[in-house]
Design a protein around this nucleic acid. Structure first.
Lengths: 204, 204
DNA sequence: CAAGAAACCGACTGTCGGTCTGGAAACTAA
DNA sequence: TTAGTTTCCAGACCGACAGTCGGTTTCTTG
């Protein structure tokens, strides 16, 4: 039991907590390392001992937020488990939108993360929770004959994108409740149509 | 005819051209003003005479690129005018994906613009071309009784988001032709299902 | 009690976005 | 022609900031 390591982990966690708050409030560019140091009461050398760069610090923040969000969504979806894919999607979406209302999630995950970390790394992290859950649900739809196996990959990406877009739309709307209602209805219709058993051809 | 103004416009355009190239290549953060000055052979004072800040310069770049892309997509869609909404959407989407392959479009419009300009301003610009065209097409679908009027607004956003997501997916894929084919098939199926006349209820 | 390592400190550096003063060239009014 | 005005350009300068580096403290281990 090395007390130095405990201490190190403590300041590390503390830095992440402080940085999370500041990043959520002012964004990545708007948050200076100096501000983090001042707020955390930690020296420069200490911070750079734990994180190689500002990006790395941000990355650590994203990771923790992402994990929290993923678990929360998972918990919400668990309540509606073994329902049909459509209600399952809707439930997960509602949970997601509620979470995306928080500045921490919106600013860090939706706005800054993709550009700071790069699209590839970002999607790679999404794979673990968001995309993973969507694929599971779509897999169930495949089992019901509502979807072709091949479509799971692209459809999951598309659903994720629409979910994020709607979440941003709601979060930044002038009239939040109205946007909420509109988006909810639209998403419902959207999912319903999307998971219809494949018709041979649409009406001409 | 003031020759001073002509000269000013010339350097302004030159700066935009140089900045476009550098922004596309290295991104917004990765491009220093100094680099633009050096590449353009222009002094600091001159640049800041024409653009109040780096963001403003970027904004000007985004505007020109956006206009070009919009016109190109419009031209491609015009060839398939007065077709049914489904083929119209597919045609526009293909044109868009081809354009998004260019680093200039991908890096500047898809990756940097939303964060640098902010989501609101970005969507406001999209309204003019991307969203506008999508709404027109969806309006036609409404006229055919395939869609409710209320759904135009959210659906256009969702389609835009999926289009951008798929474009990024293709552009950054390891196997581009495969991703291209997969995305194309998925988008086709997606649009087909989305524009089906509203069934009363999906099969239980 | 050394010896060594992990955690921490803070002055310092280079870069970068942005400002400011000054001046030259093109135009206008007298 | 000349005095005044506007537009454009030049480049020294400034403050902020991310990241570095030699040194110090604090703890564990042999």
């Amino acid at each position: 039991m090395d007390r130095r390591i405990d201490r190190g982990q403590a300041t590390r966690q503390h830095l992440i907590a402080v940085a999370t708050e500041l990043f959520a409030e002012r964004g990545f560019d708007g948050t200076s390392i100096e501000a983090v140091l001042a707020q955390a009461g930690v020296s420069r050398g200490s911070l750079y001992h734990h994180f190689a760069s500002k990006e790395r610090l941000f990355e650590a923040v994203v990771e923790t937020v992402h994990t929290q969000v993923g678990e929360a969504t998972l918990a919400a979806a668990a309540k509606a488990a073994d329902a049909d894919p459509r209600t399952l999607l809707k439930t997960g979406y509602l949970a997601w939108v509620r979470l995306a209302g928080e500045p921490v999630v919106r600013r860090i995950l939706l706005i800054d993360a993709p550009t700071v970390l790069g699209w590839r790394r970002w999607r790679q992290m999404e794979e673990q929770y968001g995309l993973g859950m969507l694929k599971d649900v779509l897999q169930a739809a495949v089992a019901e004959g509502r979807l072709d196996q091949q479509l799971i990959e692209p459809f999951s990406h598309m659903l994720l994108a629409t979910g994020n877009e709607l979440a941003l739309m709601i979060a930044l709307a002038d009239d939040v409740p109205a946007a909420q209602a509109s988006a909810e209805a639209a998403f419902d219709e959207f999912v319903t149509r999307l998971l219809q058993p494949p018709a041979t051809k649409p009406a001409p």
